[in-house]
């Protein structure tokens, strides 16, 4: 028996909005520690890893480890029917091939339940090694989204270079070139507006902007985004989810041939 009750149902709504266009079908894994997902996009260039820890749920019952295959587009359609302030409960009986989403309005005067068929998805988990990053950026998530959106109107790849001066996002295309430099800025009145650069050493990597733009769909989840870079390995773009977990996007770099 599985029953997960999330008072801040809007978090699950936002999670689905941020991954449904990147990944079509995925397995949600439920265990005593929490509700998680790991999936690659269809071209195996990006990977998303989601974790919602069990303590973040008001009620978390998971009798045994279970993996539920879902079509994320259909799941997003059902979650769109939940109000932003609704409590969302996810239920599945042992051995059943469906999952039920229950939406309760805050005043408990409206209760809806949506049942969705589960799918068999044979996806293998990838081992993600803990890496020492050459540069870690923490910046306002809206700012990062704006930069990715603006640069993608000029070119389709971005070179992200981190030096002690700051971080530079560069692109070029048919109509010309664009460079955006963000300097470390910790003299802000609200901590979430700071741009922090931890850079043990300079690094420069090239990525496809369309994936970064897809990752920024997670912007509503967190005021800040953490971008961890190291030469020749995938970048990690992480959005924290309230006090309960995170959504991490990994993107393989474009390598000079």
């Amino acid at each position: 028996m599985l029953e997960l009750r999330l008072v801040q149902g809007s978090l699950l709504k936002k999670v689905l909005e941020s991954i449904k266009d990147l990944v079509n079908d995925a397995n949600f894994d439920c265990s005593a520690t929490g509700f998680s997902l790991q999936a690659m996009d269809s071209s195996h260039v990006a990977l998303v890893a989601l974790l919602l820890r069990s303590e973040g749920f008001e009620h978390y019952r998971c009798d045994r480890n279970i993996s539920m295959g879902m079509n994320l587009g259909n799941m997003a359609k059902m979650l769109k029917c939940a109000g932003n302030d609704d409590i969302i409960t996810l239920k599945a009986d042992d051995g059943s091939d469906t999952v039920t989403f229950m939406f309760e309005s805050p005043t408990q005067d409206k209760i809806a339940d949506f049942e969705m068929r589960l799918m068999d998805i044979d996806s293998e988990h990838l081992g993600i090694p803990e890496a020492e990053y050459h540069a870690i950026l923490i910046m306002p998530s809206a700012e990062f989204a704006r930069i990715c959106k603006d640069l993608s109107s000029i070119g389709d790849t971005v070179v992200i270079s981190v030096t002690k001066e700051g971080v530079k996002f560069s692109t070029r295309g048919d109509i010309g070139t664009a460079n955006v430099v963000c300097r470390q800025n910790t003299t802000v009145d609200k901590p979430e507006e700071a741009t922090v650069i931890e850079m043990p050493e300079p690094v420069s990597l090239t990525f496809a902007l369309r994936y970064l733009n897809s990752f920024t769909k997670a912007t509503p989840l967190s005021n800040t985004v953490t971008i961890s870079l190291s030469s020749e390995i995938p970048v990690v773009v992480e959005y924290k989810i309230a006090e309960m977990g995170y959504i991490r996007f990994y993107l393989a770099p474009k390598i000079e041939e």
């Binding site: 293998e124 988990h125 990838l126 090239t206 990994y250 474009k254 390598i255 041939e257």
Partner: peptide, 14 residues
């Protein structure tokens, strides 16, 4: 030219 690499060449299947 920049060749797009794949995530599977960095993270091994468990």
């Amino acid at each position: 030219v920049n060749q797009q690499s794949q995530i599977t060449s960095f993270f091994s299947k468990m």
